[in-house]
Amino acid sequence: MNAGALITDESVALLEAIDLRKSFGPTPALDGAGLRMHAGEVVAVMGPSGSGKSTLLHCLAGILQPDSGQVLYRGAELSAMSDGVRSELRRTEFGFVFQFGQLVPELTSLENVALPLRLGGMRRKEAESRATEWLERLEVADVAAKRPGETSGGQGQRVAVARALVTGPKVVFADEPTGALDSLNGERVMQLLVAAAKDTNAAVVLVTHEPRVAAYSDREVVVRDGKSREVELAR
């Protein structure tokens, strides 16, 4: 997708989901969920297990196609794009951090972080020098030469955050990014993730059931039975 097709007007939401419905069987996983995000915003998606949080995230990121409803990225509808264009969008504009199992086991931390840049056609030297910067920023430069199996969970998760951010994504999708970490490590990962996102004006969709992780967000959306809602408090 070329950038010209994307609307960059500030008044248009960066990412917007309208009335999403998605079923995997008889019971709907999403039953009229929506969300609106602007650049630089960190939004926590909370709610009970099985309520549809991950399904919502996958639809927002164009990984899953909703049965009905719309997902608009800078005003362009994801479902109207070809698979190729959508994949390209995911690679260039989106970053992903999941709970675990996202790093390529055969590659070192450095190669893992450099991978998205290499896939974009960047030369090895340039890609690895950028990857090194991100590893340093995430305080894991010392595990650059290690493979995922040789690092701790906390280190691996920081490498994963570095990999998600190395391409300078506009939206970072994080599904329980601290789920496998103890609270001290989890908080550090959140601090680093949010700081990096704010620096680059990236939006973050943060799925979490942990209140102390959600506290790193700017606002929260609660998903329950496939429906999302925002609670507005009087100031």
Binding site: A44, R212, A214, A215, Y216, D218, E220, V222, V231, L233
Partner: peptide, 16 residues
């Protein structure tokens, strides 16, 4: 409960 959650999270953000 929803309104309370929101109020709690607001304070948690401030403390964070």
């Amino acid at each position: 409960l929803d309104v309370q959650r929101s109020a709690h999270l607001r304070l948690m953000r401030e403390l964070t």
